[in-house]
Computed example of a mutant assay.
Amino acid sequence: MKVASLFSGAGGLDLGFINKGHEVVWANDNFYDAVQTYKRNISDHILYKDIAEVSSDEIPDHDILIGGFPCQGFSLANSKREENDTRNKLYLQLLRVLLDKKPKFFVAENVKGILSLGKGKIFDFIMQDFKNAGYNVKFKVLNAADFGVPQRRERVIIIGVRKDVDYVINYPESTHDQKIFDNKKPWVSIGKALEDIPEPEEDHSLSNHDYSKFKLKFNGYLGNRAIDPDKPAPTVTARGDDKGGVVVLHHPKNHRRMSVRELALVQSFPINFIFEGNRSSAYRQIGNAVPPLLGEAIASMFPLTLDENEINQNSDKALCEL
Results as ranks from 00 to 15, higher is better:
G244E: 13
G244Q: 11
L293N: 13
G287Y: 08
L294P: 03
Q285W: 12
H250E: 03
R239I: 12
P232N: 12
D242K: 15
R279I: 13
R257D: 02
D242F: 11
T235P: 00
A238Y: 13
D241L: 09
R257S: 00
Q285M: 13
A233C: 05
G287N: 01
P270I: 08
D230M: 09
A238G: 01
K231Y: 10
L293F: 14
G240Q: 09
P232C: 11
G287E: 06
G244M: 08
Y283R: 13
P234T: 11
L294S: 01
G240A: 05
S281A: 15
A264N: 02
L265S: 02
V266L: 10
D242G: 13
R284P: 00
I274C: 00
G240I: 05
S281K: 13
N288G: 03
T235Y: 05
G287C: 06
V248T: 05
S268P: 00
K243C: 06
F273N: 00
V248P: 04
Q285L: 14
S280R: 06
F273K: 02
A233Q: 00
V246N: 10
A264W: 03
A289V: 07
R284D: 03
P252Y: 06
G245S: 14
L263F: 06
P292H: 15
S268Y: 04
S268E: 02
L293E: 15
F269L: 12
R284Y: 13
P292M: 15
N278H: 03
A233E: 02
L294I: 04
N278T: 02
F273R: 00
M258D: 02
L265M: 15
M258I: 14
L293S: 12
K253I: 02
K231H: 10
K243A: 11
S268Q: 05
S268N: 02
H250D: 03
V248S: 04
